[in-house]
Design a protein around this nucleic acid. Structure first.
Length: 913
RNA sequence: GGGAGUAUAGCUCAGCUGGUUCAGAGCGCCUGCCUUACAAGCAGGAGGUCACUGGUUCGAACCCUGUUACUCCCACCA
């Protein structure tokens, strides 16, 4: 078999993915095995893969593949989200490009377009996940608006309505004037903005003269007056809302504004006369202490309006333009109006001053360019206190674990301050609210039912009504379907107790981004507790945000987001996966630099070349009766050592996985393969050019290499499958090889588990390695050719640093002709120390006495300093009395070692000078 | 305004129960090598007052006070 010197992922990746699909290796059915379930955070159906998805799905794939290889029945369910606002916006935009306006269409016509759009663009992202290697059970692909999921949503709505947890009411909500829909409080993101604070004059009605002006001022009142009369000053960031003012408010305890009590003031420009009300809500320190009250357009003002029985004047249309209810500026956009009104106020002498000001403005999460407008509106709500009550304990009590744990706090804080969830959206793309309206005795009544037929039945029973019903036009918030995801995927809402939901629920791990902890994670826990009386998952792994290498969020407008598909084409999916994982400790943001993928690509190549090496070996068939037919001691030691080392690292890897330290597990595996296996083991057993290797070592090598591929497989599925197959088919005839290739997969193999290992052997190797490094170092500094064999002798002060088992290996790897134990330092030798062992390389012609002396003296100085610090501890009574025995023993060992070392160094120095 | 987190080598991060994992890893950088698997490589090397401050302790990167800087979440100050 002739192998190219560079690994080419392109052909390999496609081939194996197809193979896995053909063999249905991702598919799961309930059986006797332990289930391992994970549900994908469903990406937007019309979305395309971005780096966040890459990270999230790579992590999921790693843990799913590992679980599968651990013999669990792994089931990773994929699917997409209908993303009502985002998708509807896209469809509206596409239609308008064809000159079609949404509201020229009927609901049915619009939905036809929307489905068409969904089918055309939908699922691209799922195809892209295949490139990544995602081992999802594609047969289970779901959509939040498919039949099962839709019906689940309707049922849950009806159920919660019947439980009294869903209600319809007029409330202050967040309105998106572009998407023309209500939003939940969670969907509003506040951004700091530089704006202006306008100080407006509100003249006092019928106040021409204040007789006790002086007294009032002495009491602390701040009184404004000009030629037109007395006036109050109101500070506002939103002068355009004055048309909706129905009061001015002061704090009853504010000494500055006592003089305003009981008066009426005139809204500037508008001319409306409004009362001065008093409420402790007003902050005395802010602005002038006078607050304009616009109950229709501000949550606090709304509350004031309720307490003080104020009128509500809604001066905005749905789209943010000024409504007919306003006496001025009708039809003008709110921001244009703000500019204009500022000018007009100025011109009319009604503006006291304007200051620069920074405040926070709410924006729609889905329409980041549109400032939301607080607005009084009739909407559907879910009462949340009940859900907060059931969702808090499982997380606080550790039934669900968060990684990293700090998100527990965030979670608790949110639940403890929960607000009712506005679940209705004025959209067509989504699950239509299953509520029907009817009129009974001139009064509107509501019937909530699974479908119209049911609704009619209820209307008949409850109201003796047989006429037409009118269904609510609104759709539900997207998250009202995704919160059921872990249940509805297994049809657990419509068909509770079915074998699938019983088997797969609860899922094990949820991998998601922290920004949807409230939107999704919390609500899934609520739904899980409500409908399954059990948690939906055991562990939540929060990924970080993928940023560029400068730490900026990746965004389209910055253009700093690489296209994952292109990255995979350049570095291979394995390379990109490894790159992502290397920089991704749980919960930390990822500063992603494309260059890191190179490391992944290089590593694929490294493993590939190890395969090239091994596959080029000729195995001794015993016929030559040469030494190569039997395993040498060297090879035997090498194999044993590698086995110990593997066992040790596997233990580490298992620990890392238990704690979801994926990047560390990967790094440990990486080093095991690159350093231990390639740099050390393969060099140990590598036969001289043209000579064969013994059968035993060869088989052991194939076995070790294969197991290393298993360990690496979850991280880099493609290259490991390729190499593993090559290893299984080496030396087989074509027919056997074809059979193996067609019937076996690395995915079906059992992940190696930790076993007992011999620490002494590992320690002995470490000594040997240091000896080798010492010799190599001497070569390096003296510019000696690696081809020139050297001799090594050593003085062992005690037995801890002996390495006799590795003598042959040291000889081979450092090109040493002989290793001798001596009692005294040979004349004319370079030296180095390994622990307390002195090593010498005799080399009379190369010894520079002064240099050597200096080196030794430096070492001596260090050792003496070290000894001093150790002695400091040991001569401290409190330490000897207070520290645990084991610690003291360690210090005594340090002392002994240091003393031995110092004696050796002194002897060497003496012999040189 | 409330809460959480972070600060260790040029960069990204480990450092778990305070003590031989104690100052580490990967990448980058420097030096020398195209050595018969791999230059996408090999061998070696340099790099750090563990943000600052005070304390607890026989002993602190680690525990506690405070300070500074950055990040995130929450909140109705117009």
């Amino acid at each position: 078999m002739e192998l190219a010197s560079k690994y080419d992922p392109r052909a390999v990746e496609e081939k194996w993915y197809q193979f896995w699909l053909d063999k249905k290796l991702f598919h799961s059915e309930p059986d006797h095995r332990v289930p391992y379930t994970i549900v994908i955070p469903p990406p937007n159906v019309t979305g395309v893969l971005h780096m966040g998805h890459m990270l999230n799905n790579t992590i999921q794939d790693v843990i799913v593949r590992r679980a599968r290889m651990q013999g669990k029945n792994a089931c990773w369910v994929p699917g997409t989200d209908h993303a009502s606002i985002a998708t509807e916006a896209k469809v509206v935009k596409a239609l308008s490009e064809q000159g079609i306006k949404k509201h020229d269409l009927t609901r049915e016509q619009f939905l036809e377009h929307a489905w068409e759009w969904t089918h055309k663009h939908g699922g691209i992202i799922l195809q892209q996940l295949r490139k990544l290697g995602a081992s999802c059970d594609w047969d289970r692909t779901a959509f939040t608006m498919d039949e099962t999921r839709s019906e689940s949503v309707t049922r849950v709505f009806v159920d919660l309505y019947n439980k009294g947890l869903i209600y319809r009411g007029l409330r202050m909500i967040n309105w998106d004037p572009k998407a023309l829909t209500a939003l939940s409080t969670e969907e509003v993101e506040y951004k700091e903005e530089r704006s202006k604070l306008y100080y407006l004059k509100y003249y006092i009605k019928d106040l021409k003269d204040l007789k006790d002006l002086k007294d009032l001022e002495e009491q602390g009142n701040i009184i404004h007056r000009d030629e037109k009369g007395y006036y109050a000053v109101v500070a506002t960031t939103r002068p355009e809302t004055i048309m909706g003012d129905t009061a001015m408010c002061i704090n009853p305890k504010d000494p500055k504004n006592q003089w305003l009590r009981g008066h009426r003031v005139i809204v500037p420009l508008v001319g409306r006369e409004v009362p001065v009300i008093e409420d402790r809500y007003v902050d005395i320190e802010f602005g002038t202490g006078c607050l304009k009250v616009t109950p229709a357009h501000d949550v606090n003002d709304y509350n004031l309006g309720k307490t003080h029985n104020l009128d509500t004047i809604d001066i905005f249309n749905d789209n943010g333009t000024i409504s007919e209810q306003s006496p001025l500026y009708v039809g003008m956009d709110r921001f244009a109006c703000r500019k204009q009104i500022a000018k007009d106020l100025e011109a009319a002498g009604l503006m006291e001053k304007v200051e620069d000001y920074t405040n926070k403005v709410g924006y729609s999460q889905r329409n980041p360019d549109t400032a939301i407008e607080p607005r009084l509106s009739l909407q559907w709500f879910l009462k949340m206190q009940h859900f907060a009550d059931i969702a808090l304990p499982p997380v606080m009590e550790g039934k669900i674990k968060f990684y990293p744990e700090k998100y527990k706090n965030t979670y608790r804080q949110w639940l403890e301050n929960i607000q009712d969830w506005c679940i209705s959206r004025q959209l067509w793309w989504g699950h239509r609210i299953p509520a029907w309206y009817l009129e009974v005795n001139g009064k509107e009544e509501i019937v909530v039912a699974l479908n119209e037929e049911e609704a009619k039945k209820i209307a008949k029973e409850k109201y003796d009504y047989t006429g037409e019903l009118r269904q609510d036009e609104d759709a539900l918030d997207t998250w009202f379907s995704s919160w059921l995801w872990p249940i509805s995927l297994f049809d657990g809402i419509r068909n509770p107790g079915n074998p699938e939901i019983n088997y797969y629920y609860p899922t094990v791990d949820l991998i998601t981004a922290p920004d949807i902890i409230f939107f999704w994670v919390a609500r899934m826990i609520m739904a899980g507790e409500e409908y399954m009386h059990d948690v939906p998952f055991r562990n939540v792994y929060f990924t970080g945000v993928v940023r560029d290498k400068l730490g900026r969020k990746m965004s389209k407008s910055l253009g700093n987001s690489p296209d994952p598909i292109k990255l995979m084409e350049e570095y291979g999916a394995d390379g990109v996966r490894m790159g992502m994982l290397l920089t991704a400790p749980a919960g930390n943001d990822i500063l992603f630099d494309e260059k890191i993928c190179e490391q992944g690509r290089n590593f694929s190549n490294k493993m590939w070349n190890a395969l090239r090496l091994v596959s080029g070996w000729k195995v001794s068939d015993g016929s030559d009766k040469s030494d190569q037919s039997n395993q040498s001691d060297n090879n035997s030691v090498a194999v044993q050592w590698m086995e110990q080392r593997m066992a040790q690292v596997i233990e580490e890897i298992e620990k890392d996985f238990d704690q979801y330290r994926l990047s560390e597990a990967l790094m440990a595996t990486y080093k095991l393969i690159w350093d231990d296996f390639c740099s050390w083991y393969l060099e140990m057993v590598k036969p001289a050019y043209g000579t064969p290797i013994d059968r035993e070592t060869y088989d052991a090598t194939i076995s070790i290499f294969s197991r290393l591929m298993l360990l690496m497989h979850p991280f880099m599925p493609f290259v490991t499958e390729e190499i593993w197959h090559a290893l299984q088919t080496i030396g087989k005839d074509d027919e056997q090889a074809a059979f193996i290739n067609a019937n076996y997969s690395i995915m079906n193999q059992h992940m190696p588990t930790s076993v007992f290992y011999d620490q002494r052997m590992l320690d002995e190797f470490d000594t040997a390695r240091e000896v080798i490094a010492g010799v190599r170092n001497i070569r390096n500094t003296r510019n000696l050719s690696p081809k020139e064999a050297l001799e090594v002798s050593f003085i062992a002060a005690d037995d801890r640093y002996r390495f006799a088992n590795f003598n042959g290996i040291v000889q081979k790897l450092a090109n040493v002709s002989a290793i001798k134990e001596v009692k005294e330092k040979p004349a004319g030798a370079l030296s180095f120390m390994v622990g307390t062992m002195e090593c010498f390389v005799p080399m009379p012609e190369n010894v520079n006495k002064d240099e050597e002396l200096k080196k030794l003296q430096d070492e001596l100085k260090y050792a003496e300093g070290f000894l001093r610090s150790v002695m400091g501890k040991l001569s401290n009574e409190k330490f000897v009395n207070g520290a645990p025995a084991a610690v003291i023993e360690k210090e005594r060992n340090k002392q002994r070692d240091a003393e031995t070392k110092i004696a050796a160094l002194k002897a060497q120095i003496a012999s040189l000078s």
